[in-house]
Design a binder for these strands. Sequence first.
DNA 1: ACGAATTCTAGAATAATTCTAATCTGAGAA
DNA 2: TTCTCAGATTAGAATTATTCTAGAATTCGT
Lengths: 137, 137
Amino acid sequence: MRSSGSLSRDTNVLNRLRAAGLRPTRQRLALAKLLFAHGPRHVTAESLFNEARGNLSLATVYNALHDFTEKGLLREISIKSGQSYFDTNTTAHHHFYFEKTGKLQDVPLESVQISSLPEAPMGETISRVEVVIRLAR
Amino acid sequence: MRSSGSLSRDTNVLNRLRAAGLRPTRQRLALAKLLFAHGPRHVTAESLFNEARGNLSLATVYNALHDFTEKGLLREISIKSGQSYFDTNTTAHHHFYFEKTGKLQDVPLESVQISSLPEAPMGETISRVEVVIRLAR
DNA sequence: ACGAATTCTAGAATAATTCTAATCTGAGAA
DNA sequence: TTCTCAGATTAGAATTATTCTAGAATTCGT
Ligand SMILES: [Mn+2]
Ligand SMILES: [Mn+2]
Ligand SMILES: [Zn+2]
Ligand SMILES: [Zn+2]
């Protein structure tokens, strides 16, 4: 018997929310399970709402996505005008962007070697370097 | 006497539109002059509309920005959710993004040395690599 | 279970952008 | 020059993404 049945998966997700200081409500648990129970994902408020359909409102999806982001469980990404993506992979990494389909795909940090960067402007501090590799339309 | 008076500046902007296959209408000339008559700029539909105020509608600003972009006179940039930037610098280059103010600043191409990149996914072609250097909030 | 704080929800509101349909105009033809 | 009309402009409506509001429901420490 394995230790990754649906009970322990639920428990993991619940603990994850607790650890982040978020109340594990029914709605948040449902969303967190969709987001975190499998591999890394890049979702849209709309796409996540569609997956969770029937059990919660769109406003709650936005609330949860922002709450999760503030607590460091998600990262918000803007590559396309008009709609934000939320990334379950919060570790430093980069992205392929498929212009044809609007999909994102992770690029491991070490796949992109940056051998020199400019100095930050006076009084500023670099908080993160993001590389987007666009794939032709 | 120099050759960069306002007459020749108007002429240059007009020729630029002609060369791009765009009719040099009054509205486009006004916008092109704001965009191209001085150094490189990063504008928003709203910010450009405010500069041109009174002489054209916001819909026209959007039309012009998209027309210019299609003809290669501008580049559209999405770094922030909710609003697009348009960049008058269409050569390959990167950006500093000031999280505090929402402003962009050009980073010359050669200031960022990328010594290795991942292969494009099967059947895909890299069309451009964009680096955004975020400056702490 | 009680109560305070937090969260959820639907719908209204807002903000950015796109669409529509009427009107206008630049620029080549005559 | 004047004529023509494809293409451009316009204001406002429409659409889309997102945020706000205010009341109802839930969570959780006690
Ligand atoms: Mn705004
Ligand atoms: Mn949509
Ligand atoms: Zn990612
Ligand atoms: Zn730029």
